[in-house]
């Protein structure tokens, strides 16, 4: 088999995940796109390991490690997303602008602990659409 086939497929999957990370608004869909990018890297690792006939099989071992780290990442990420949803009432990443420097008009001071709020409160209802373009990068980062 040509090495170009899995390499090109991995590139296209990675760019699909890149588009999803940049274009999606829901945080869980962003996590899905991150999974796609990690899978593209895994496909590359396996293909190069099979091509090189590594005696230590570093590519396959690293693929297993990447899968494990991705599972840990998705667990922590979903816990954070659920916590944000419980405190802020939304999981849209362009509404989470508490840490923005320009135009941050959040209702809370950003340090509110989960114990202080009883239910899901929409804290950031004053959403200014003109500012979301500027601050979305910081929200995704």
């Amino acid at each position: 088999m040509h090495l170009a086939y899995p390499a090109v497929l991995a590139v296209l999957l990675f760019c699909t995940g890149l588009y999803g990370v940049l274009a999606r608004r829901n945080a869980i869909l962003v996590l899905m796109s991150v999974e796609l990018m990690l899978n593209a890297v895994n496909l590359n690792l396996v293909a190069f390991d099979v091509w090189l006939r590594d005696t230590l099989h570093a590519g396959q071992a690293l693929t297993l490690f990447t899968i494990t780290i991705a599972a840990a990442e998705i667990g922590i990420g979903l816990a954070i997303v659920l916590l944000v949803y419980r405190n802020r009432g939304t999981s849209h990443i362009d509404r989470l602008r508490e840490l923005a420097e320009t135009g941050g008009t959040g209702g809370t001071d950003g340090t509110g602990r989960p114990a202080e709020t009883d239910g899901p409160t929409v804290a950031d209802a004053t959403d200014n659409p003109a500012d979301t373009r500027l601050t979305r990068g910081e929200a995704t980062a």
Binding site: L18, Y19, L22, R24, R25, N26, L29, T132, R133
Partner: peptide, 13 residues
Amino acid sequence: ADSGNRPVALAVA
């Protein structure tokens, strides 16, 4: 479901 910077994301991808 998609945010406003969809064209930018498409161009980058």
